[in-house]
Amino acid sequence: MLIRTTISAIHILAFGLVPTSIFSPAGTPAHSIFDLSMFVFAITGTIFLVVAGLLLYALIRYRNQPGHTGREPTQIYGSNQIEVSWTVIPILIVVVLFLTSARVIFTTQAAPKPKKALDVVVIGHQFWWEFRYPKLGIVTANELHVPVSDPLHPTPTYLTMSSADTDHSFWVPRLAGKTDVIPNKVNVMWIDPATPGLYLGQCAQYCGTQHALMLIRVYADSPSDFAAWVARQKMPAVESADAAEGEAVFQRNACINCHTVAGTVATGRFGPDLTHLASRDTIASGALPNTEENLRGWVDNPDHYKPGALMPPMHLNQHDLDAVTKYLTTLR
């Protein structure tokens, strides 16, 4: 514990408060990787110091000095004892490193799933994330809400992942290592943040033009916050009278081909579910804060913010654009 605290203090001094550092783990998988990485750093660091030290010594000690006679040094062709020793010692190091790694591989990837685990289906799309909670009947995008996991009564979240198009990779460094999200293949990983907070990450496998802005936000909520979030997300879309015009514009345009707003005629699945869009902090897969201005600009021309994004510019007139933006901001 003391070692961990010291290391994290050094880390903050050296790198600042980085929201995505692998050295500030906040969940079990990330913690076990962190501990293993410190062990690996210690071993490789020692090897480096020994070998580089010997090299440096040899280079200085045996350099050609002025006034050298020009006689060739003694020719040595090899030595079986020495060569055996520098074969056997590395083999021993390899065995130790392998056994330590294998333990973490199995405790992470073959861990038994607790009964109270939450299930989330993660679907990677070209340049955004779809999150479905099958047992709760919730569908959302880009911002994953999970309950914090008390180490004594763990409630980890199991992510069952696949892709709708190209390869992606789900990486939130403070919670766990990455797992690829591949079409026609189902991968499972788990996360268990112990403290409430926001954990950032992003797609880590090149997936096309906007790979860079396929960001991930994981909100670890306290049990009561999580329950409140679930209750709200389960409700159908808010119907508000002063947004009726915008809703009509939304429904008679191509918006509904790609987007779902639960309880309305909009049932498209190609783009993010918008039922509770206004409850999210960001739009465009974490690339923009969810403000009215950004929403308006995004609907008008997504390419301006995310060149290569698959949503087409909607070519609405100013009046309709305002109306749709208003409608979207009411979808709490």
Partner: peptide, 20 residues
């Protein structure tokens, strides 16, 4: 040095963080 960072990457769990 390249060999030693290679050993770090060969440790599969560490690689889950470092790869990509």
């Amino acid at each position: 040095i390249a060999g030693l960072t290679g050993i770090m990457l060969s440790v599969a769990p560490f690689d889950w963080q470092l790869t990509g």
